[in-house]
């Protein structure tokens, strides 16, 4: 059953130390990066990481939070689906999906894990 957790605001995003380190590495060579939660065919839920400004942030984007000072967006249509999700940004071995930047170094990519909070209990 969903875990009761009154302190977590959802939807929201946090990053593991590995993800924060990877963002730190990226920011040494990139002015800024932004994350976009994907969906759909093939790479589906991959967190896509681009140079800030590469993807034009539009009316459809909701800011879920920031990780390592970088914005994490989700499409408003997906936002409702994620209403009880806390996204945990992490890093694993393997090439980045789609057009995403790797997680700091080649051969590493960003992944999402999820914590589901009880309906209503987490909604602030």
């Amino acid at each position: 059953m969903p875990e009761e957790n009154q302190d977590v605001q959802v939807p929201s995003v946090i990053a593991t130390q590995a993800a924060l380190d990877a963002i730190g590495k990226l920011l040494r060579t990139h002015k800024g990066v932004a994350f976009f939660q994907s969906g759909g065919c093939c790479d589906n839920s991959a967190p896509m990481c681009f140079d800030e400004g590469e993807m034009i942030v539009g009316n459809v984007d909701r800011l879920v939070g920031t990780v390592g000072g970088c914005p994490y967006y989700i499409d408003f249509r997906q936002y409702e689906t994620y209403r009880t999700s806390q996204i945990i940004l992490d890093v694993e071995d393997g090439e980045a999906d789609g057009f995403s930047l790797p997680a700091g170094i080649e051969g590493k990519h960003f992944v999402t894990r999820t914590k589901i909070c009880a309906k209503n209990a987490c909604n602030v």
Partner: peptide, 13 residues
């Protein structure tokens, strides 16, 4: 392009 939505959006952009 065939793939996921964010890349699709980027392709269109």
């Amino acid at each position: 392009f065939t793939g996921e939505t964010v890349t699709g959006r980027l392709i269109m952009q």
